[in-house]
Simulated assay, not measured.
Amino acid sequence: MTSEIGAVSGLRSSQVAAAAGVNPQTLRYYERRGLLAEPDRSLGGHRMYPPEAVTVLRVIKAAQRLGFTLDEVADLLDTGRHRHGRRPDAGLRTRAQQKLAEVEAKIADLRVIAGTLQAAVDAGCDDLVTCAGEPCCPIPFTAITVGAPEPTAG
């Protein structure tokens, strides 16, 4: 945003970082990753961000808390910027459904792990090698593959 005399208005890095609750180095990192547009510079060379940069940063951080990687966030931001002519299934709803399925699968895996650990605690397992040799050992030493189906007897 330039005025008639060539001055650039906006927010300095420290102001944007404080408003979004991030470190100023995070701004530069997100610029390098292409998540945040490179800002204009003041006559003195200071980065001057538009107020919308705060919203973009908050969106990035919220998406990360929901489990999206920075690559996924970049794709979501890009999709949002270029909605015209894009696949209708490339938006947030589809991505959120996919991420939800991933999270639910992880929760299921964690429940199996938690149950096995609780069984080990309840059984009084104190030594993995000794426990592994006992028939009552609850830890499946032969088939610990989280997310994979259990082998069937037969």
Score class of each variant (00 low, 15 high):
A105W: 00
R87H: 15
A108W: 05
R95N: 12
R81S: 07
R87K: 15
R81Q: 10
T116Y: 02
R93M: 08
Q98A: 10
A96S: 02
Q97D: 11
Q118P: 01
D89M: 04
H84S: 05
R83N: 04
E104C: 03
R83Y: 03
A114H: 12
G91Q: 03
A105R: 14
G91F: 06
L117N: 08
V112S: 01
T79P: 02
H82I: 09
A114C: 07
A90H: 14
D78I: 15
L76S: 08
A108Q: 09
G115W: 12
L76Q: 06
R83D: 05
H84E: 08
D78H: 11
Q97L: 10
Q97G: 11
R81D: 10
L100W: 01
D75P: 00
H82S: 06
T116G: 04
R93L: 14
L76I: 14
G85H: 04
R111V: 14
R95I: 11
L92W: 10
L110H: 05
G85Y: 07
D75Y: 13
P88H: 15
L117E: 10
Q97E: 15
L92Y: 11
L117F: 12
L110I: 11
R95S: 15
I113V: 05
A90E: 14
L92C: 13
K99L: 09
K99H: 09
R87Y: 10
L77W: 02
V103L: 08
A74P: 00
I107D: 04
R87P: 00
R86L: 04
P88T: 15
R111C: 04
G115H: 07
Q118C: 00
G85P: 04
A96P: 02
K106T: 13
G80H: 07
V103M: 10
K106H: 08
A101C: 05
A114V: 09
A74D: 09
R81K: 13
P88N: 13
T79H: 06
L100E: 03
D75R: 14
A105G: 12
G115N: 12
R86W: 09
R95E: 10
R93N: 06
R93F: 08
E104L: 05
Q118L: 01
E102Y: 13
L100S: 03
R81C: 00
L110P: 01
R83L: 06
E72W: 02
R93E: 14
R93T: 15
A90Q: 12
R81T: 14
A101Y: 04
R111K: 06
R93Q: 10
K99I: 11
I107P: 01
R93I: 15
A90T: 15
I107H: 10
L110E: 03
R83A: 12
G91M: 04
R111A: 14
R95Y: 07
A96I: 01
R111S: 04
E104R: 14
D75S: 09
H84W: 01
A108S: 08
V73Q: 02
E72G: 09
I113W: 03
T116L: 00
R81P: 00
A114N: 13
K99Y: 06
E102H: 11
A114M: 05
A101N: 05
R87W: 11
I113C: 03
G80Q: 08
D109M: 04
